[in-house]
Design a protein around this nucleic acid. Structure first.
Lengths: 331, 331
DNA sequence: CTGAAAGCGCTTACAG
DNA sequence: CTGAAAGCGCTTACAG
């Protein structure tokens, strides 16, 4: 029914294999032939059947995007759409498509992944998160499916792209110190996420460098990642008023904390947080400093890395790429 | 290299066609045979090649998800991730996957769509937006690709799922009236989006029903959809202080407006807005009323509708489904 | 630089 | 209820 490669071949007076080579833009075909074939493709409105291509070449021209286990926190965090925008941006430059992983439970998620990997529906994988002992990432590594993680995974035998969270934690803390703060608290979040502890490391470094004491009771690493968690943290802990600044590792938590600080009228407490993108205004008070993570770059670089990995797949030695995306202090 | 249907067939002592039927769970195969074949599939860790399936059956088992032209506003709006979560939820129940559309410019977007539709990579399409004279939707209709729009499209010859925006606009406005407000403004947003004008219709209805005058100067339908737009609207228009309430059609705009109202200390002005999901706390002040749009249902119902449409595709008459998802006033 | 031919791994009438 | 066979629309050594 649809136009096939044979139709094009016939009308152009060449063999189907030649048309195939034109589609692939093979250098072994003369420009003259290419021109002619392409014209016919246009006339006939020919589009190659992706399934046939995938079957014959075992290259499906699509990457899988692995979403984390569905939690409100993740989907609500601006990190997610921002990274996605970056991915989409890089995809447009190629002919590749993105397939979303599906599944609610851990088991469903793994099953779906197996289906699309073993089923040759994807050539590579982008993990939108890094967490400890992730069975999906383990699977990808075992079967040797080219993968790149957004975030910092525990294993170093993986490609990944991330912010330099230690440096950013350091920058954020130093900013507060420079502004005159001396009693600075640190509020983490989901400890499963490595970036939390890296930012903490930077926080400690900045304190030490400025001869400020690192106190365990100033570090709040409870398990939380929603605005309400941050809100409650302030509302239920009067001791917070003794601090003069807070580094808040998670943006949503920061929103809740700021609201609570407002209500408590503790305006002597400075805060700084990390944001997926450059704010115009959003929920930040004018003059509120923050660290711009440039998360969209995480997405677009991840795609680029995956292409590189696949290109290099023939080389004998295993080599892994990791890249740190620049962030910046916005004041 | 990988395990194929022939390997399974050989080991199970049946024909490949039988294995194929077992995979499809065809009712014409005896339970006994199914059991045996399935066991072998497990032993061999067999997964069907999706490309081959797609080529032979021209059913790719994947839907395309059409993202709107990349604007910050869309990606930052909680609507997007919330709907996506709903889609993901409904997908898990089936064996289908979601392919993301790509492309920055309108032209790239259309080209990518053609590639995946003509290339038989998708069986159906979910449009994550409804806008006027959308060339992508037009294309889908012309080629008869099963589609469902999230939002209300201009043409009625499309399947779609949406909130009942007129009713919700009415509910929101009536709430303000019941609270004692008499001079109520309406702030729209991107007029290209139909839901904006539907909510306006509901607003007008509520006013009339309560013998309140509908004044043109109380209706702000400028082109805006970012927090900063809302912020500026308040900051630059002192006349706003003459209102005692505002219905705000867009959540991001509402955030900016509330911040500006705060700064102006115009605490006599009530606001109500529409939110993609049920808030725990987020950026809303405690006690702030809003309309919960249940956007995740938009996503999950869209998927369900698409399955129905495809199932019915054989029927002679063209029939279109549209469904209105319930929202609720949260006070 | 181009073509003929085999093959990728399935599905599906058709026949029994 | 099951099998043999044709075919889906490409790609890619191989030969020239």
């Amino acid at each position: 029914m649809a136009i096939t490669i044979r139709d094009v071949a016939k009308k152009a007076g060449v063999a189907p294999s030649t048309v195939s080579r034109v589609v692939a833009n093979s250098p072994s075909i003369s420009e003259k032939t290419k021109k002619k074939v392409r014209q016919v493709m246009d006339e006939l409105n020919y589009y190659p059947n992706v399934n046939a291509q995938g079957l014959a070449s075992s290259r499906s021209k699509t990457f899988g995007l692995i979403l984390p286990p569905a939690t409100d926190a993740f989907y609500q965090n601006p990190f997610f759409p921002t990274v996605l925008r970056g991915i989409n941006y890089s995809m447009s430059k190629n002919d590749y498509s993105i397939l979303l992983s599906a599944g609610q439970t851990q088991e469903q998620r793994l099953n779906h992944l197996k289906k699309i990997v073993y089923g040759k529906q994807v050539e590579g994988l982008i993990f939108l998160y890094a967490s400890k002992e992730d069975p999906l990432l383990t699977f990808a590594q075992e079967v040797g499916c080219p993968s790149v993680v957004i975030g910092t995974p525990e294993s170093t035998k993986v490609n990944f792209v991330d912010n330099d969270n230690e440096t950013l934690g350091y920058l954020a803390t130093r900013y507060l110190i420079n502004e005159g703060s001396k009693k600075i608290a640190y509020v983490g979040g989901d400890i499963e996420q490595f970036f939390i502890s890296d930012r903490l490391t930077g926080y400690k470094k900045a304190l030490k460098e400025n001869n400020l004491e690192v106190k365990e009771e100033a570090i709040f690493n409870d398990f939380m990642f929603l605005p309400l968690d941050g809100y409650d943290l302030i509302m239920n802990n009067n001791q917070f008023k003794n601090f003069d600044a807070i580094v808040i590792a998670d943006e949503l938590v920061a929103n809740g904390m700021r609201q609570a600080l407002n209500e408590k009228k503790w305006s002597h407490i400075r805060t700084i947080s990390f944001s997926a993108y450059k704010h115009l205004l959003d929920n930040l008070m004018p003059g509120q400093a923050y660290v711009n993570l440039n998360s969209h770059l995480l997405g677009s670089r991840a795609v680029d890395i995956l292409f590189d990995v696949i290109k290099e797949a023939n080389s004998k030695n295993k080599r892994f790429m990791n890249e740190y995306v620049e962030g910046e202090l916005v004041t």
